[in-house]
Amino acid sequence: MATEHSRTAARLMVSPAVILLFLWMIVPLGMTIYFSFLRYNLLNPGMETFAGFDNYYYFLTNAAFWDALINTVTLVVGVLVITVFGGIALALLLDQPFWGQGIVRVLVIAPFFVMPTVSALVWKNMFMNPVNGVFAHIAKSLGLQPFDFLSQAPLASIILIVAWSWLPFATLILLTALQSLDREQQEAAEMDGASVLARFWYLTVPHLTRSITVVVLIQTIFLLSVFAEILVTTNGGPGTASTNIPYLVYAQSLLNFDVGGGSAGGIVAVILANIVAFFLMRMIGKNLDA
């Protein structure tokens, strides 16, 4: 569908993007790989020595790594479950006719615009603080002992905060999908005697599959690298209870100044992400046929 002229032009037009992304991917990654084989501490610059696989050995055998891995997965899956199911429920509700649709939609979408540092701080201090937080006030007024969310259930609290930020995204996409549902198809099914539940299961759910895929894909990309929320709430603690892999790598390299160890951790994170990406890409390759 094109001539040699336009193909040449196309290659020329696409190359800046490709070259930049390639460099962006390969240069720092190459350096990370290089550092990961060095004994390299930021406090003793110029003292780097070759370390072989030591950094990997220490990183992978460190109990903190396994905690962080489990925490990362828990965080991603937890948020995905809450936002996808919550998003479907909310979208179904908001798709009904009611008074003030526009305003409610504005209210629901708002958390998406709140930067991670703000949402984390607001939740940490104004809501989850065991002394002055809204939850503590409510507990006290009910005669209950206030619950210290961030030290008693740090990971669950972070999941809650992150899910709050992403729920609007899921809801909006699913709502848009619902609104494009073929009404005549629904009516035909109703004429065929399908119950509300059957219609939901056989018509609505398949229709939503594509948008759920989009939600899962985009959110996973962002959820795998949740960082700011942890930094400003728990600093990964108590212990490693809320440390995920990005935070662990950050702590290793920039808090402990262990560049070698941090780099090894970074490479491990890249490998893990690639495993996830592989499956995700296959999934969207099928669903997002462009």
Binding site: L21, M25, P28, L29, I245, V259, I267, V270, A273
Partner: peptide, 23 residues
């Protein structure tokens, strides 16, 4: 090509944090 571009988005930032910081 599109898939590859999107996959660069999947690369966790921490993987390149150290060299980026040093650079």
């Amino acid at each position: 090509l599109l898939m590859w571009m999107l996959s660069t988005k999947m690369m966790p930032a921490v993987g390149v944090l150290v060299p980026m910081y040093l650079m």
